[in-house]
Design a protein around this nucleic acid. Structure first.
Lengths: 150, 150
DNA sequence: ATGTGTGCAAAGCATTTGCAGCCAG
DNA sequence: CTGGCTGCAAATGCTTTGCACACAT
């Protein structure tokens, strides 16, 4: 269940921004901290917003959240996923990527290690003369807990 | 590339609605016809709307499109997919399901036969005590054509 | 100093909803 | 007839954008 993965901290994210000549502001630091603490949790922009405000004390505008996510995403530090209806979710790129088990009852998501999935799909994709870049995989079903609950 | 799949026509869709005691209206018939003609193409609600109006001549309200998609989706006759940003796309369930190769350059999608993918992922999901229902898989990358174009 | 990042407010787009009337059954 | 379906219009939810000011560098 638990495995050793490359830990991504605030510093990696902040340094990523700095390395591009981008400026480190309070808002950006807070957002990076929230993402670093999330450890790969799937957060909506709204959730990131809430937490960033809570941790920094300072009000941050929603557009700043979106603009910062956009920047981090271009730097491949975070990734978007669109899991069914509702807002998009963002997660750290910390373990070479992973995919999603989405429970259609409770809505919780669980990670599916990328390495296992990748091999199977890459072969398929190449058979279609397609070069896979980002893998976005969502398996929607019923999680153990909800099944137990009936 | 081409393979024989169970053909889904207007009748299957209309009969699906009728079998649930739902009413067959002009709008619904037009929408079903558009979907049947799409042969698994991925259509946004807006695209379905346009085509349905064009083919029936009668104006149809956008909300009717959404409400009809919803009904068809509950009957498992069509399926939603959320491929990156932008509007959701809908496609016929005609071959036991399929998944998506999405080109990040031209945006076109190609189908990935479900059967091949399913086996690999099902095992993974079950290892996580997860019962897969709908598989939603998108492999994002670069298609043969765009790669050739540089 | 300088121009990048921010807040604010407004617009944008996809989708949903309430309600009154219409039409398929 | 009668309730399910539709149109209309307004509301909603998420995200983007234009502009003027602030602050990191």
């Amino acid at each position: 269940m638990t495995e050793a993965v490359a830990r991504v901290g605030v510093d990696e994210l902040v340094d990523g921004l700095r390395s591009q000549g981008l400026r480190i502001t309070g808002a950006r630091r807070a957002i990076c901290a929230v993402l670093a603490e999330s450890r790969g949790e799937h957060l909506t922009a709204a959730a990131i917003h809430q937490r960033a405000v809570a941790r920094s004390g300072v009000p941050i505008n929603a557009s700043t959240i979106y603009r910062t996510i956009e920047v981090l995403q271009v730097l491949s530090l975070v990734r978007y996923a669109h899991l069914g209806h509702g807002p998009a979710v963002v997660h750290l790129v910390q373990d070479g990527g992973h995919h999603h088990l989405v429970c259609e009852i409770c809505g919780r998501t669980e990670d599916l290690p990328a390495a296992d999935v990748r091999a199977a799909l890459r072969e398929l994709a190449e058979r279609h003369h397609f070069v896979p870049a980002t893998l976005h995989v969502s398996v929607i079903g019923i999680c153990a807990e909800c099944r137990a609950a009936g």
